[in-house]
């Protein structure tokens, strides 16, 4: 029997305590919506988090939830999923939690391809400790811990994910209540680690960081929603597209300089070769629109499934099921 869930089935009664206007609220609402659509029962869903503003999210979910320690959410979520693959396991995390203190766990979860869904809320700032630069802050970023600007380059989450052999990478924006739930649903459907980078605004310490990309005024020209099997078209009038020239992407206006609709790339999220996915994911909003939607979605062996498969294979060959069975198969001698 299929039960129809509604977003409120996934809402916990606890008072939400993020700052008013924080992008986390939007992510939470989108997740409630997405989970209702995914249709896994709240009691079969586990939301894990580390530390940071984004990591408060499990408290606001009417699922099983575990708010853990800084950076370790990916490892803990891995343990949850491997122990019980029946559960739908989510990780709610941020740029500091996953890419600084938890960088190692993040890349290894992605590499192993354990079936967890990672929502990486990237506001390019440490919010809970009140405004220090994060590993995604742009070079030169001025804040309390870099009063003269940072002298280091940021991580780009897509690059890190793909570098760690990521099979699913999507990007969403906090204010896009229409598309973000769909992206979350796609992440849940993907078997293996899914990473959704949410470009998210911190109203207190980094307000407006994505304004020139995501605000209503610029969004059509500065972003492109990628959909598998569809042409890469964007712009206020859907008159712009992404083409490939040699090894280089180019944003062009259809009908100008000899470019036609036929030249525009068709998005293949399932391509095993990540080269084009990486190029698309790194489009920066300057000369290119920022790519949104599911950028990469490739099938591969899933860690937790393989763990159980191996057990089943060994069990098919070896009848021992108790410690005693096993020990008696080994080198033993009897004292009578």
């Amino acid at each position: 029997m299929n039960i129809q869930y509604s977003p409120k089935d996934f809402k916990s009664p606890q008072l939400v305590r993020w700052c008013p206007g924080c992008g986390d609220h939007a992510v939470l609402n989108c997740l409630h919506k997405a989970m209702a659509e995914i249709g896994v029962a709240p009691h079969n869903t586990a939301v894990i988090s580390g530390i940071g503003c984004s990591s408060r999210l499990p408290y606001y979910m009417n699922t099983y939830g575990f708010h853990t320690i800084h950076g370790r959410g990916a490892a803990i979520a891995t343990g949850v999923k491997v122990a019980n693959p029946e559960l739908s396991v989510w990780l709610s995390t941020g740029d500091g939690d996953s890419l600084a203190i938890g960088g190692n766990h993040f890349i290894h979860a992605v590499r192993r391809n354990v079936d967890i869904n990672i929502i990486l809320m990237n506001n390019k700032i440490y919010g809970l400790t009140k405004g220090q630069y994060s590993p995604t802050s742009d070079r030169g970023f001025v804040c309390k811990s870099s009063p003269y600007g940072t002298v280091e380059d940021p991580f780009r989450p897509a690059e890190l994910t793909i570098g760690a052999r990521g099979r699913f990478f999507a990007r969403a924006i906090d204010v896009d209540l229409k598309n973000t739930p769909d992206i979350m649903v796609a992440a849940a459907k993907h078997k293996g680690t899914s990473v959704i980078e949410v470009l998210l605004n911190c109203v207190i310490f980094n307000d407006g960081i994505y304004d020139n990309i995501v605000s209503k005024e610029f969004r059509a020209e500065k972003t492109i929603m990628l959909r598998h099997g569809e042409k890469m078209i964007f712009g206020e009038n859907d008159d712009k597209g992404i083409v490939l020239e040699g090894f280089t992407l180019k944003a062009v206006t259809i009908g100008q300089n000899g470019y036609t609709l036929n030249d525009v790339l068709v998005h293949d999220a399932h391509a095993i070769d990540p080269t084009l996915h990486l190029k698309l994911a790194l489009m920066d909003g300057e000369n290119f629109p920022v790519a949104l939607g599911v950028i990469r979605d490739v099938e591969a062996e899933v860690y937790d499934v393989e763990v159980e498969k191996q057990i089943a294979e060994v069990q098919a060959k070896n009848p021992a099921r108790t410690l005693k069975d096993f020990l008696m198969q080994g080198e033993v001698w009897e004292v009578k």
Binding site: R72, A75, I76, G79, L87, N104
Partner: peptide, 18 residues
């Protein structure tokens, strides 16, 4: 796991999961 911390953290996750 990838390190000692992940060793115990995967175990804590598994414990949470029963």
């Amino acid at each position: 796991a990838e390190d000692e911390i992940a060793g115990i953290c995967t175990a804590i996750g598994a414990s949470f999961a029963g």
